[in-house]
Design a protein around this nucleic acid. Structure first.
Lengths: 239, 239
DNA sequence: GCGGATGGTCAAGGCTGTTGACATAAGCTA
DNA sequence: TAGCTTATGTCAACAGCCTTGACCATCCGC
């Protein structure tokens, strides 16, 4: 059953073609398949072929393909944060954590597109939450604010990771060059004026800048918390 | 052919069951289906049934299902910005535009999950870019910076919209309550300390706060641009 | 060596997107 | 009004998809 995925499987029997299956091997192969052929490239049959096993062997390890995708998502987080430990400076630690996750996602864009928006509730995601909230609590944020700030932080990171991954993996980037570069200045003056810059920017990432702004905001926030009472939850926030 | 989707279809023949198909009707029906049954709920056959037409009639209007999804994506943007016009204050205008898109996505979360990361290159998206870049250029940002800032802005908005939509549409929210609330304080002290707040925060949104921070950053940015030379692209940004 | 559970294999069912041929009717031209 | 062109609705078919249930070989504890 998939339920005992955490307990080491013991009774492994080689498949007809000789490979010995395991939870980790299946996840790794799935990631390889997704990053090779895109999200639709992950099919039970193809996975079986890539593993050298009957396609339905998958169901001895995972409840469904979605269960596998969740496992892949968690593995991606795990890989990204492998060996990561926060340092003294909370701001630097958070920035590093964000960059680790972001670059981890972009290293396997097609996989990230499939998984970045999922909540896995598994070991690696839990570890990430524990670390992230820990950084913020250590910085001096009260529990409630630490939770909210972590939420905003992780969504910022995963959101940019996902969009940039989608843009880089699809032929979507071509649309920017093709469609937007050809718009005439009389109907679309602003696009025409910055068409070249738009194309360049869209193929790059805005994450670094956005994260910087966010951390700037958090720093101010922290100061007002220290002076007693931040603006979170208050009616008059910056919107 | 799907290529002439912009030219009004003239020779409309009622289907066997009496409905008269059109580009708009198909898109609207697709949105209804997706938001009812989730992303997998959109299938050619189900769409045909919902339209009261042969499933394959779809291919007279769209090249493929992906082409339809792109049309849905563009329609979602169009709906969100319907009637929107920027005002005098650039900051307020951008904030309003962001909120319009964000809430537009969350009004149809399952559709947004499917479409928010796509680049459509069609009328409504083009209009959004034109408006957004226009706001920033009007505020005083040079063309290059306006493009970059718009990129960061739209990705911020769509990223949060997508993640919040995914969280609200899946049963993922339950995971937060189930998994994270039950973690013991000795192994996961930080999660345990803010478990309740985490659950509350995860079911809400962090977009408002993040957008506020971003606009704060932009405001500072603009001031330094006015004084000659912002920090964009400079080696020593806030990361 | 025996019993029971694990895990690989197989067949089958009901989905899926897409294509090509066919039929029909709308609108144009004369 | 007759007839032509062609847009568009319909149909059958194909290959592939996920998942289930049964079957059975192998491994583990006893």
């Amino acid at each position: 059953m998939a339920a005992d995925r955490l307990a080491a499987q013991r009774r492994r029997r080689p498949t007809r073609s000789g490979t010995v299956l395991s939870y980790e091997l299946i996840v790794a192969t799935a990631i390889r398949l997704i990053d090779l052929h895109g999200g639709d490239g992950l099919s039970v049959r193809r996975l079986g072929a890539a593993l050298g096993a009957d396609p339905t062997a998958l169901y001895r390890y995972f409840r469904s393909t979605d269960d596998l995708v969740l496992a892949v998502a968690d593995e991606l987080i795990g890989k990204a944060l492998d060996g990561f430990a926060p340092g003294e400076d909370w701001r630097e630690s958070l920035a590093l954590m964000g960059r680790r996750i972001y670059t981890g996602c972009l290293a396997r864009p097609r996989t990230a597109v499939l998984t970045a928006a999922r909540v896995t509730g598994r070991v690696h995601e839990i570890r990430a939450v524990e670390i992230g909230v820990g950084i913020l609590r250590g910085a001096g944020f009260p529990d409630e604010a630490a939770a909210r700030c972590y939420h905003a932080f992780i969504d910022l990171t995963l959101g940019y990771a996902m969009l940039d991954a989608a843009a880089s993996s699809a032929g979507d980037v071509a649309a920017w060059a093709d469609v937007y570069a050809g718009l005439p200045a009389d109907t679309h003056p602003h696009i025409a004026a910055s068409a070249e810059a738009l194309g360049r920017s869209m193929s790059g990432s805005a994450y670094a800048v956005a994260l910087g702004f966010y951390l700037d905001g958090l720093t101010l926030e922290l100061e007002s918390w220290r002076k007693g009472g931040g603006r979170f939850g208050a009616a008059g926030n910056t919107l």
